Amino acid sequence: MTLRYIAMPDDEARRIWQGGRDAYGKLPERHISDGDGVPCRHCLRNVEAGQAYLILAYRPFSSAQPYAETGPIFLHADKCLAPDEDSVPPILASSREFLLRGYGADERIVYGTGGVVAQEALEQRAEELLARPDVVFVHVRSARYNCYQCRVERR
């Protein structure tokens, strides 16, 4: 199975860069990276030390519903390029483990799919989840803080 790693959509990132508000209707906070643990959800690369970044509330779902979690993410303060969807993003090499969770076509958690996996087992577990007929996409989240990293789908 070929996987696609999907970042924050270009139109969402552009809206924020142009002064848009986050999922809670607030303006993003602007900070300067120390280079440690600041993964941008648009380019799926870490924000380098000295670069400006934004912190904002993000809901990676098409509508508000009970399973549509909203949480903090980082975004380069200045425009960055979306990643190649066919490659494992650099931010997924920056931690030893991640939380993976499968979702159905209704964007609700498919029970029994959530679990923490070692970084080296991430692709294999995503493939296993996406092989299920009831799983349409997988969220990769921080194992420590539950922060959204990216979405994984079948190609």
Rank of each mutant, 00 (worst) to 15 (best):
C80F: 09
E48G: 10
G114H: 01
T70I: 07
R41Y: 13
I16L: 15
L56V: 08
H31G: 01
I32S: 08
E107I: 11
R41T: 04
G19T: 02
V117K: 05
E85A: 11
G71C: 04
S94Y: 00
T113Q: 05
E85M: 11
I73R: 10
P90L: 02
P89M: 06
Y53W: 05
A131S: 15
R21Y: 09
A77F: 06
P83C: 15
R96E: 11
V110L: 10
E127P: 04
D34H: 09
C43A: 01
L92A: 00
G35R: 11
C80R: 13
L122T: 03
K79S: 11
G104S: 03
H76K: 08
F98V: 02
A49K: 15
G25Q: 04
G115Q: 02
G112D: 03
C80I: 12
L81I: 15
S94C: 07
K79P: 04
P89W: 04
I16H: 11
P60M: 15
Y24I: 01
R30Y: 01
E97N: 14
Q65M: 08
R41I: 06
A23D: 12
P133H: 06
K79I: 10
F98E: 00
P28L: 10
T70C: 08
I55C: 06
E107K: 13
L54Y: 14
A121D: 15
S63N: 11
D36E: 05
A68T: 05
I73C: 11
D134F: 13
Q51K: 13
G71I: 03
S63E: 11
T70V: 12
A23E: 03
R108V: 07
P90F: 01
A52M: 11
Q119P: 01
A13R: 01
I16K: 06
A13H: 00
P66K: 12
C40S: 09
A118I: 02
E120L: 07
A49S: 14
G104N: 07
V47N: 07
G25I: 04
R30D: 03
K26R: 13
P66L: 15
W17Y: 09
T113L: 09
P133G: 07
D106H: 07
S33C: 05
V38E: 05
V38T: 09
H42G: 01
G50T: 13
E127H: 04
V88M: 15
I32W: 03
G71E: 01
S94T: 10
P133E: 07
R125N: 00
V116P: 00
D22K: 03
S63M: 10
P133V: 00
D78G: 11
G71Q: 07
R59A: 14
L27R: 15
G35I: 11
Y24E: 12
G19Q: 07
N46M: 14
I91V: 11
E69P: 00
K26Y: 12
V116S: 03
I91W: 02
E107Y: 12
V117R: 06
R21V: 15
I16Y: 11
Y24L: 10
I16N: 10
Y103A: 01
V88F: 07
R101S: 08
A121M: 14
L99W: 06
A68C: 14
A68D: 06
I109S: 00
F61T: 00
Y67I: 05
P133S: 05
R45M: 12
